[in-house]
Write a protein that binds this DNA or RNA. Structure first.
Length: 348
DNA sequence: TAACCGTGGCT
DNA sequence: TAGCCAAGGTT
């Protein structure tokens, strides 16, 4: 494989086939040397962490319409940003998003640092995001390695070591392809290739611009790369969610600032544990004395466990809760939106 | 270092 | 159906 030939092939493909994405502004979707707005690059990269383009796109449009600049975002109240993030998941990103916006506004005069090292010091910017913003927004020749790049590189070089142990080797190999020319386009070309051609399950090698350079394709089984170590089984947990209403209002609580769903509005719940709750025990753990009725169950999958929630509903009053109109329930994380809808639509 | 941290679409 | 997977970061 000749690295310069490979680069030329992939960049030519990108010039022709780059995806049109909401955060790629200007002619040719942000290519051809058009300077991107660092705020929008940063916002899109944070939203795209472990998140698909179709899921992140409406959030990006909503955020940029409501908060056009990092300064505007920095001035917003915590609860408003957390509610706007609801449904996107990994809520530590929203907390770090605000912390980062305020750091840029207060410590950097409202201007993002323009180097990888400077960006790396901001909350929520790890090795990937700092490198990506530096390359895409500031034309810095950084080594941008995400899941797409790891897969593409593992196939180009037919790396036999399994992930995640192979990460350092994949990063080192990716580094050998970085040049001073078009660093932002190079990073995005690798990721676009991984997302549209060099897919995890069924790679479209017949349409791949660098198929001739691919050692995995030469083995006859490119889809078996990257190798991976087996994952542990996800445990199952049980809990109770309480839907207490007062007319049109629903009782909510603010979850602790850290941990699962940290800082988000939520339904009151019991502890979550391995053993299921019986009806009597579920009533005994309720946040208020009321005529609780068992109105259903919901299942929800988190990253490292699955959760079954028994749903109890009652009309009544309680201390220390946040009474919120039903129409505002879209500010809840998906697990609680799902539970609240199921309970409220189940009047029996 | 390894565990923790969401969600929804796809196969 | 149930696991797999997505532009990872923090502790």
């Amino acid at each position: 494989m000749n690295p310069e030939v490979l680069r030329a092939r992939l960049l030519a493909w990108y010039d022709d086939q780059a995806r049109d994405l909401a955060w790629r502004v200007g002619p040719a979707g942000g290519r051809a040397g058009v300077r991107q707005d660092p705020y929008r690059v940063w916002l899109s990269e944070v939203m795209l962490q472990q998140t698909t383009v179709p899921h992140a796109t409406p959030y990006f449009l909503k955020f940029t319409a409501r908060w056009p600049t990092v300064t505007a975002l920095a001035a917003e109240q915590d609860g408003e940003v957390m509610a706007a993030w609801a449904g996107l998941g990994y809520y530590a990103r929203a907390r770090n998003l605000l912390a980062c916006a305020r750091a840029v506004a207060n410590d950097h005069g409202g201007v993002f640092p323009d180097t990888e090292e400077g960006l790396r010091g901001l909350p929520g910017l790890g090795p990937y995001t700092a490198a990506a913003v530096a390359a895409i927004a500031f034309d810095r020749p950084t080594n941008v390695v995400d899941g797409n790049v790891e897969r593409v590189i593992s196939r180009l070089f037919a790396v036999e070591a399994p992930l995640p142990d192979a990460k350092p080797e994949l990063k080192r190999l990716a580094e050998t392809l970085v040049r001073d020319e078009r660093p932002g386009d190079w990073a995005q070309a690798l990721m676009d290739l991984g997302a549209t051609i060099c897919k995890p399950k069924s790679p479209l090698c017949g349409r791949c611009p660098v198929a001739l350079d691919c050692a995995a394709l030469a083995t006859g089984a490119p889809e078996t790369y990257p190798r991976k170590t087996a994952k542990a089984v996800r445990p199952h947990r049980n809990g109770v969610a309480y839907v207490l209403t007062r007319g049109d209002l629903v009782a909510l609580v603010r979850r602790p600032p850290k941990g699962l769903l940290g800082g988000m509005l939520a339904l009151p719940t019991s502890d979550w544990r391995a053993d299921p709750f019986g009806d009597e025990e579920a009533r005994a753990s309720a946040p208020a004395h009321a005529a609780w009725r068992h109105v259903g169950e919901v299942e929800h999958g988190f990253t490292h466990f699955t959760l079954a929630l028994k749903l109890l509903r009652a009309e009544g009053d309680a201390e220390g809760v946040i009474w919120s109109p039903r129409r505002d329930l879209d500010g809840l994380p998906s697990v609680f939106l799902k539970a609240a809808r199921a309970a409220l639509n189940n009047l029996l």
